[in-house]
Amino acid sequence: MTDLSGAARSGSKFGLEDVVEVSYPTEWRRAQRNPGADGKPGPIEFSSPAAFETRNTGSTFEARLDTDQEGVMLRYSVQRVIAGDRSVHHRIHRDGKWQEDVSFPRLSVNEWASTLRISRGQWTLVGSGTDFDAKGHLDKARSVLAFIKVE
Rank of each mutant, 00 (worst) to 15 (best):
K97Q: 13
S114V: 06
F132R: 08
D133L: 04
H89M: 11
F104G: 12
L138G: 12
L107A: 13
R142K: 13
S143T: 13
K135V: 15
D131R: 13
V144M: 15
E100G: 01
I148M: 08
G96L: 02
D95E: 09
N110R: 07
R117S: 06
F147R: 11
I92H: 02
R117Q: 04
A141R: 13
L107H: 08
A141Q: 12
G127Q: 10
N110C: 00
P105K: 03
S87M: 15
K149H: 12
S143C: 05
D131N: 15
A113Q: 15
R91Q: 14
E100K: 12
S108H: 02
K97W: 10
I92S: 01
E111Q: 09
L138Q: 14
I92K: 05
A146F: 01
K140E: 13
G121T: 14
I118S: 07
L116S: 03
N110Y: 00
R86N: 08
K140C: 04
R86Q: 10
E100R: 13
H137G: 05
L125S: 14
A113E: 12
D131G: 11
R86L: 11
R120G: 02
S108T: 00
D133S: 00
D133H: 06
V88W: 07
L125C: 10
A146S: 07
G129Q: 03
W98M: 10
R91N: 08
L125F: 00
T124E: 11
A146N: 04
N110L: 11
F147Y: 15
R120N: 01
V88P: 02
D101N: 07
H93Q: 01
V109S: 12
T115I: 10
S119Y: 04
D131Y: 15
V102Y: 03
L138P: 14
T130I: 10
T115G: 12
D133R: 08
R86V: 06
E111R: 06
G136D: 12
G127L: 08
R117P: 06
V102L: 06
I148A: 08
L116Y: 00
T115E: 10
S108P: 08
I92W: 06
I92Y: 04
D139L: 04
S119W: 01
W112N: 09
R117L: 02
F104K: 08
R142Q: 09
V102W: 05
D101W: 06
S128Q: 15
H93V: 00
R117F: 03
A141C: 00
R94H: 03
S143F: 03
H89E: 05
H89Y: 12
T124K: 05
E111T: 09
S143I: 08
H90P: 01
G121R: 15
G127P: 07
G121M: 14
F132D: 03
